[in-house]
Design a protein around this nucleic acid. Structure first.
Lengths: 339, 339
DNA sequence: GTCCAGAAGACAAACGATTGCCGTCCATGA
DNA sequence: TCATGGACGGCAATCGTTTGTCTTCTGGAC
């Protein structure tokens, strides 16, 4: 039914080993040009497609990269995944997507599964700051690229946005609008982004000459609208009440907007809100959200490029940081002014 | 480095073949219970994980299903993909995602790649009504499940929403609001959904006693906001102007809203708009969209279940249709009334 | 005591590619 | 004329499983 290398070899009247060499650009020079032509023609005529299972078994390379993401339904990830797939695909590699659903057990099982399938490496968007599984993988010599996250141990390569720069831009924007009481609804502190943005926020407050006492940080436990909503309720009951909120990410910012509606308040009149990531469709929301745009597609693409280079033996670790940009929309306004 | 079946066998003092039989529930009965225990313990102690490349090579089954989607960044698909992954994962299968980007050449290449990786079957969300590639796959005996689409040749199994029912509900809703001049911005007619919803629209017009002459159908070439926008401009220049539009899908409906804004008109005051699919975040839009909800997660899950059954030898083809539901939001209102 | 059935496990042949090694042949130079 | 060397392509081992067949051994029936 399916055509194998032996079929091609038979048709071209050569030994299968020779056919293999002729079809592989790296070894092609070992075969006479005429013979190569004959073999290539035979392969085309038969519609030969190499069996990657057999190939992978022999070469111990599957040309396959596992991609661990916490939740594909989070609009942040599709553009990233597309970036990964494009780069990987161009290099004739395949991305194996694994949605961990933010569940460590599920992640364990998926990784075992992907390892069984002999993935060459992993691009990991689920990294926590401490992450035993990743350490084990790294110990076993599995190539790893952290995406959007960095590890507390700099041994793992990573590709991220320049969160600190983004946060500084955002706080500067708010300060320029006259805001002095700015709250930060921090993301989970066991994630590097949550931690980093938190620190960057404090840093920005200092650098811009704001008063830390006026700029409270409210910790959230997840990157979700729900966490944003409850965090916002907490922020709204503070005295004095903040006039602006920097959310840990866009979903949390959307939750803040929900909380405002519930409290009968208005954004940006009563509270300016800034998100993080600029996930798709944000510009079409009831209140188009001001946010810090991270180059999602590019982060994905760059992480795939890095993975390919690592698979080719590039010395590690490498840390790539891509610039962010503040996108101003309708959810921020000058203090005390109608939006 | 990696532990193989031979390692396990050595530790348990049996032949590798015996170890294989003991580890496989289906052949376990050929090995004495004590020996099984010994082998299982050895496998656990060593952390044995079977090499699926070798296994697949031998068994000609990769426990892997290719999933062809047109565009992962379209918010419609992530929930579907999650549904697929969940069901497949529970059966210890893996989904290989391939984003065709609506490009037939790219699709060809990806399918060749997936076939090379010996995918056991394909779940296809990119099907056009005429689709030579699919016919070729089917001819070659590759298990196929069409998702969200049906083929004009009923030979291919499929899982879809009950579009006709949804369209009827939508038109009935508009008619109940007093609309008599309802336009349909049809999706691409070479896609079954576009075709089917178009026919269902005409059907609904007839059944609800509306006048076909008052209910024009404007064809769109793609399922995009851009197509919706230009289609809406065309609709708005009609005399008499329609009071309601049923869009081919949600993205087109969003395009209609854009066109309204551009024309200085208001939804729903000047035009009621209905989408299709209820993709995520629609409820948070500037104008929360009335739409027909298709059970996306369930469609994905069901297509995966169907695929697994087909791989187990279920006779084909089977066509599964899942119910839709109209979700009324703020983009529809009674004729001539403010929203 | 002999025979036989059946259980248990060993054995080996695949699956389809890759790759280092080896033989053959021809051309070249001395 | 003969030795040398390079080009070409055949050969066979190998990757890690699975699985049909074969051998061995045990116990029970006669």
């Amino acid at each position: 039914m399916t055509v194998t290398l032996a079929d091609v070899a038979r048709r071209a009247r050569v030994h299968p080993g020779t056919a293999s060499k002729a079809l592989n650009p790296a070894t092609r020079h070992r075969v006479a040009p005429d013979t190569v032509r004959r073999i290539v023609r035979a392969a085309q005529a038969l519609g030969y497609e190499p069996n990657s299972l057999a190939r992978g078994l022999r070469t111990r390379r599957s040309r396959t990269v596992g991609v661990l993401i916490p939740d594909l339904a989070n609009p942040l990830f599709p553009p990233i995944v597309r970036g990964i797939e494009q780069v990987l695909g161009a290099a004739d590699h395949l991305a194996l997507l694994a949605d961990t659903d933010n569940d460590a057990d599920r992640e364990e099982r998926l990784v075992a599964m992907l390892l069984g399938r002999r993935s060459d490496g992993f691009i990991v968007a689920t990294a926590r700051r401490e992450h035993p599984l990743l350490d084990r993988l790294a110990d076993a010599g599995t190539p790893l690229v952290l995406l959007n996250r960095v590890s507390d141990h700099p041994r793992h390569s990573s590709v991220t946005g320049d969160d600190a720069e983004g946060v500084l831009d955002a706080v500067r924007h708010l300060a320029a609008l006259g805001h002095r009481r700015i709250a930060h609804l921090a993301g989970p502190q066991d994630l590097s982004t949550g931690h980093l943005r938190h620190r960057a926020f404090l840093d920005a407050v200092d650098r811009l000459g704001l008063d830390r006492g006026d700029c409270p940080v409210l910790p959230g436990t997840t990157y979700s609208t729900e966490a944003g909503r409850s965090g916002a309720h907490a922020a709204l009951s503070l005295h004095p009440r903040p006039t602006a909120v920097l959310a840990g990410n866009d979903l949390m910012a959307l939750g803040v907007l929900d909380a405002l509606t519930e409290a009968g308040l208005h954004c940006p009149r009563d509270l300016s809100v800034i998100g993080f990531n600029d996930m798709p469709m944000l510009d079409r929301m009831a209140t188009p959200l001001t946010t810090i745009r991270t180059p999602q597609h590019e982060i994905g693409a760059e992480s795939a490029r890095l993975m390919l280079r690592i698979l080719d033996g590039l010395p590690e670790p490498l840390h790539i940081r891509l610039p962010c940009r503040l996108i101003v929309r309708a959810s921020t306004a000058a203090v005390g002014q109608p939006g």
